[in-house]
Write a protein that binds this DNA or RNA. Sequence first.
RNA 1: CGGGGUGUAGCUCAGCCUGGUAGAGCACUGCGUUCGGGACGCAGGGGUCGUAGGUUCAAUUCCUGUCACCCCGACCA
Length: 570
Amino acid sequence: MRTSQFLLATQKETPADAEIVSHKLMLRTGMISKLASGIYTWLPMGLRVLKKVETVVREEMNRIGASELLMPAIQPAELWTESGRWDQYGPDMLRINDRHKREFCFGPTHEEVITDIARNKIRSYKQLPLSFFQIQMKFRDEIRPRFGVMRSREFLMKDAYSFHLDAESLEKTYQTMYEAYTKIFTRLGLNFRAVLADTGSIGGNFSHEFQVLANSGEDLLAFSDSSDYAANVERAEALPPAASATKSNEPIKTVNTENHYTVEQVCQFLAIQPQQLIKTLLVKGSDTEIVALALRGDHELNEIKAAKHPKVANPLQFVKDEAIQSQVGCKPGSIGPIKLNIPLIVDRDAAAISDFVCGANQENKHCLHVDWSRDVGEIEIADLRKVVPGDASPDGKGKLQFARGIEVGHIFQLGDKYSKAMNANVCDESGKAKPMLMGCYGIGISRIVAAAIEQNHDEQGIVWPEPLAPFQIALIPVNLHKSDRLKKMCEKIYSELKAAGYDVLYDDRQERPGVLFADCDLIGIPHRLVLGDKGLDANFIEYKARNSNETKELPLDNYLTELKNFVGVE
RNA sequence: CGGGGUGUAGCUCAGCCUGGUAGAGCACUGCGUUCGGGACGCAGGGGUCGUAGGUUCAAUUCCUGUCACCCCGACCA
């Protein structure tokens, strides 16, 4: 490609609304252009990178025998009503009506559609297992889109789905996908980790996320410092504490704590540590109106764990202050587990302390020296809290450390959730109809582009890993317009490089060399060839890699051979 | 959804308080000089000041509504 034929939309200044480095650089390099909040055009430069990611993903999907298809972006509501998700999915789903006022959505994901395909087209267990994938735009109406294409509303996703007769087959394909994902992210040159994950609204029971490690990441990950345990913090189990509760020797005492409501305020007022305080949260229950959750004052509720508890409504909803007032008779800041006429679930760590402080269920009052068995009675114990750094690793080996990550892939074993709801059955060996088991496997293609920049950049701009670069080689002539013989030579080299299979950007603009160099570094093209009259006289062309400061002089009559030492043909 | 902020040229912003219908730098066009790390001079082009209404002789400026965009929060027991 010649720069003169290409939209090189680079800019010196960073647009004001970009926050993180990948977003800034994607705007400055002219890869993307915003149309509306969370909605972007992929300009020619950006699209080249996006296609590179797509290619790697497609190759690895094909390699493991998944078949590519393309499902509609617009899906009828009926399908989602069948699976039960029309009501469940929430405002992330963009719902639209056609001219007949029929309801549709812009697909946020495609389990329903693929399940519909499967039930219509797959008849026998003999056809299984089968895997499909597509690379397609999804739309999720995020609460707050941000960071450019990192969290956009419209985004390109690879989603794959597998169908099986039994769990063994599902696990096998899951493992194959896991390995394919590992291969994909390795090929893309990303520093990533696979972590145990929550299954979220997709459903199912077993799942891993692939996280690109970056400080700008929105996900928090927990790693063991002495084993390969890794999990999303929202999923990491907090092990029961080693010591169990002792008894309180002192009688319970109610004290006045007027105007002190938060954990911090109460602790300061009573001169106690938050570890000695029990906070009680009221949430909506699944069968009952309200369920109470008790945690240690220094711990935070893990909403995902709580919502999974059979007695708690999923998704988690906190009870409104007015309802608390009418049910308990006090404001939220004074609730406690004693004589609370509400089903109670106590976190493991909270259950392990005694002689604690808690709300007295009376306005402005707290209780001291409380003891679970003496003052509250039988309690139900569950893992409710978020893990914190230093907690024991759930696999029993070492302690947990935290790091931030960008979720670029997620694989799930769905089981029969969709096949059962939508009657996607096959005949088994005995001729009986049986719901297929399913797996689903996603990769955020557009997000990978941003994640890769987060990991690969410097002061000058992007430093693309080879497989992602929009161009492999930049050919930069020095003062092209002044020298006819330089022009002739550059044309020759440009055709030779193309003929040799390289993806070249030939910068034939009439700009000063500094401008060309600066743009070349900003865009992050991995390999650079520079030729000027000086080189022509001395019979060399200069080579430099983007990630190195060293330049090399390659003999003009043999530069292609030498170049092969640095650059692979695609 | 709650809180905060911003909308003026393609980009980054000034002007607004103290009304008199617009400016800088970058980018763009032409000419000249320059030419291995984002050059310089001269001459240009480009804005119904987000939008609707109000006040006023006069509104980018003051008032009201509205839309868009950005940031923070959505743990409070």
